[in-house]
Amino acid sequence: MAGTDGGAFRRMLRRLTSDVEVLDAVDLSEDAEKSGAQRASECACGQEVTVLGRLRSVEFCPQDAEASLRAELFDGSEGITLIWLGRRRIAGIEPGRTMRVRGRLAVRDGRKVLYNPYYEICQAQTP
């Protein structure tokens, strides 16, 4: 029983002294694992993947040959660029949103990319 209390104390101390971004990444990874999603860092080019994460950024890119909406999804292990071709805006797609996305993974300029992914906006997990 004393070991349980010591473990709880160590976890609490780690949470109090760790960097907020590190803690957020750990929480995102745990949420993704619980949901059955794949870790972005373990996904390979050509695979059909399902990833759960939080949008870090969203931007409209008019300079491409075909205008596109781009978003950066971070699951706690790695980021994946989401690109919706021919879209200026999608309701609900905004920074800070938690999303589950599915599609065939590509690699463009060394970055993992999902083109026109299927997506589901999820409720943020509460502790």
Rank of each mutant, 00 (worst) to 15 (best):
C61V: 14
E48Y: 00
T50E: 11
T126M: 00
G79V: 11
F60I: 04
R88S: 02
Y115D: 14
D31E: 14
V22G: 05
T126Y: 00
P62G: 03
S41P: 01
L16C: 12
E30P: 06
D75S: 06
G7K: 14
F9N: 09
I80G: 03
G53Q: 09
G103P: 03
L114Q: 02
M1N: 12
S57G: 00
V20A: 10
N116F: 00
A71Y: 09
P127K: 11
L85W: 14
R108L: 15
R39F: 05
I80Y: 05
N116T: 00
A25V: 02
G3F: 11
R70I: 04
D27I: 07
E42H: 01
L13Y: 12
D109E: 13
R14H: 09
S57C: 05
E21L: 10
R102Y: 07
V113H: 12
L13M: 14
A32G: 06
S77E: 13
F60W: 12
V26M: 10
D109H: 13
F74Y: 04
V26Q: 08
L13T: 12
A8E: 10
I90H: 00
G86H: 10
R100L: 15
C61S: 11
A71S: 00
Q123R: 15
G86Y: 05
R97T: 07
E30V: 09
T81D: 04
E78F: 00
G7P: 02
V101I: 09
Q47V: 06
T81L: 06
G6R: 14
K112D: 01
T4E: 15
D64T: 15
A65M: 06
G79T: 15
G53A: 01
G53E: 00
R56I: 05
A2E: 15
K34W: 07
G103L: 10
P127I: 06
G36L: 10
E48C: 04
D24T: 14
W84C: 01
F74K: 03
Q123Y: 12
E59T: 04
G46F: 08
V51K: 02
F60A: 03
R102P: 05
G110E: 01
C45Q: 12
G86Q: 03
A37T: 14
K112E: 00
E78K: 15
P127Y: 00
I80E: 06
A40K: 02
M12F: 15
S35H: 07
D75M: 10
D109A: 15
E30I: 08
E78T: 04
R54I: 07
S57M: 11
S18M: 02
T17Y: 12
S41N: 10
D64W: 11
S77L: 10
R104L: 09
E42G: 07
E21Q: 11
M12E: 08
E78V: 02
V107E: 06
S41Q: 09
M99D: 03
E59Y: 09
L16H: 09
Y118V: 08
M99W: 07
E59Q: 03
Q63Y: 12
G92N: 06
R100D: 05
E94D: 07
R104K: 14
D64A: 11
A65G: 01
R54E: 02
D109F: 11
L114K: 06
S57H: 05
A8L: 06
A40M: 09
I93S: 01
E78R: 15
E72L: 01
L23M: 11
A37N: 08
V101R: 01
N116E: 14
M1S: 13
G46R: 07
